[in-house]
Design a protein around this nucleic acid. Structure first.
Length: 425
RNA sequence: GGAGAGGUGGCUGAGUGGUCGAAAGCGAACGACUCGAAAUCGUUUAAUAGGUAACUAUUCGUGGGUUCGAAUCCCACCCUCUCCGCCA
């Protein structure tokens, strides 16, 4: 969430900064509302001040005279009553204004960082570097073909259980998924992250705090009988873990790693990536999350990205690092580095991790502060996948495929998986 | 699901209509003592909004209401805990 004061005092620059996202943000209406709100606030404050003084006076008079019915007192009370009526009228107006401002401000995205490449969409993202040699060969099989022949997952039967875009991992597939989760958690915890296993169902306040609501209500599954949603990413519960807290600044940075299942409606993606493990309604993910001192978040952003990268390196999967352009940035992010893994069957890199610096955007929405230089200050939050498990499995299957139909398991993963090759069971 | 208890500052916890933004303790900050530290003693210490500041206002789970005046009374809702029931 953006700072209301900034909108009120500097509407032009707020509008300009937001418009770097590639579309026009007209904030003149919300600006007008915040100004009106301020005027009413001043009026209410002065009336309250008078009314408060009057009440004190009445209290003193009563205790002095012991007479509640003197004409002087009655006239004072009448005066107080008039204040009360005026104040409650103004408060009603203020309530309406507050709601109108909230409706707009919660729908405004974060400012893009000045360092992010300026661009309109995906095509303007900037490749920073590549790592490893992308496998380019004839007769490459897709991961779903490999999966089918090795019998490690079943999407057809899964539609019986749920619907399309759900998958059941079987045998070695399930084992590989489990191995990947443990492998990633072990590396990150050794690297100074505290492991959390949060609830998979989250309330509306949590989703609002991290930026998924109110704008993207269409993208999460909702439990209609309760104020609960299936969490689309562990970023949501991890942000909410410290909601409404004043964190001792000596504890910063706080670094969490969490495995969680993630649920997304994938509305509007009909027909895209319908096969395999790339785009599912439910997938597993290991998420990295930092709460950090506002002056340290640029540094932290590099670190969280390289922590995610280290998994790809250990698994020996070719990837590239992409600097997301202003037009392609997520709602809460000011700067995002994507890690994209090479998928030889589609001859392209696919997103496997997204590492974002949200600055104080989520902290303001969630009220997470620290006393810094004697002042309570919103801290900065960062998140990054470390990594998406299903897509990692897809990459291992495709990059490790052998002539005989088996798949080579990356050396680092062998102790977790228990075998050097994945073969038909 | 049924019955009961409760939600107060960074934390614990007192406060049932009038100088209560709130006792006390813990924690924290600063100072004294010390070569240094611990212990001890002293001082300070809630947040938010507006204002350069003095200051003003709001906030005792949330939202309404009664009243000149509400942490305190009334109504609704949310949440937590205990017991019973059900249950992985």
């Amino acid at each position: 969430m953006l700072d209301q004061k900034l909108i009120r005092e500097n509407p032009t620059s707020v509008g300009e900064s937001l418009s770097l996202r590639g579309k026009v943000f007209n904030i003149s209406h919300i600006h007008e509302l915040t100004v009106k709100k301020k005027d009413i606030d001043i009026e209410i404050t002065s009336l309250q001040s008078k009314s408060k003084k009057l009440s004190k006076l009445i209290g003193q008079e009563i205790s002095k005279s012991k007479n509640n019915d003197s004409p002087e007192l009655i006239s004072l009370k009448k005066k107080g009553n008039e204040y009360r009526i005026k104040i409650s009228e103004l408060e009603e107006k203020q309530r309406i204004l507050d709601k109108e401002v909230d409706d707009e401000i919660y729908n405004l995205p974060n400012f893009p960082s000045k360092d992010a490449p300026i661009g309109k969409d995906e095509s303007d993202n900037l490749q920073i570097k590549t790592w490893g040699d992308p496998l380019i060969k004839e007769n490459i099989k897709s991961h779903w073909e490999i999966g089918e022949s090795l019998n490690i997952f079943d999407s057809v039967k899964s539609t019986k259980i749920s619907k399309s875009r759900f998958i059941t991992l079987t045998g070695n597939g399930a084992r590989l998924e489990r191995a990947l989760i443990n492998f990633m958690l072990d590396i990150h915890t050794k690297n100074g992250y505290l492991e959390l296993m949060p609830p998979a169902l989250v309330n509306s306040e949590s989703l609002t705090g991290s930026g998924q609501l109110p704008k993207f209500s269409n993208e999460s599954f909702k439990c209609s009988n309760d104020d609960l949603w299936l969490s689309p990413t562990a970023e949501v519960p991890l942000t909410a873990f410290h909601r409404n807290e004043l964190i001792d600044s000596k504890q910063l940075p706080i670094k969490y790693v969490a495995y969680s299942p993630c649920f997304r409606r994938e509305a509007g993606s009909y027909g895209r990536d319908t096969k395999g493990l790339i785009r599912l309604h439910q997938f597993n993910k290991v998420e990295l999350y930092w709460f950090c001192h506002p002056s340290k978040s640029l540094e932290a952003h590099k670190k969280i990205t390289s922590d995610a990268e280290s998994i790809l390196k250990k698994l020996n999967l070719p990837y590239r690092l992409v600097d997301i352009c202003t037009g392609d940035l997520g709602f809460s992010s000011s700067r995002t580095f994507d890690l994209e893994v090479w998928l030889p069957s589609s001859k392209c890199y696919r997103e496997i991790s997204s590492c974002s610096n949200c600055l104080d955007f989520q902290a303001r929405r969630s009220s997470i502060r620290s006393k810094i230089d004697k002042k309570n200050t919103y801290i900065h939050t960062l998140n990054g996948s470390g990594l998406a498990i299903g897509r990692t499995m897809a990459a291992i299957l495709e990059n490790g495929q052998q002539k005989d139909g088996s798949v080579k398991i990356p050396d680092a993963l062998v102790p977790y998986f228990g075998s050097n090759f994945l073969k038909t069971a």
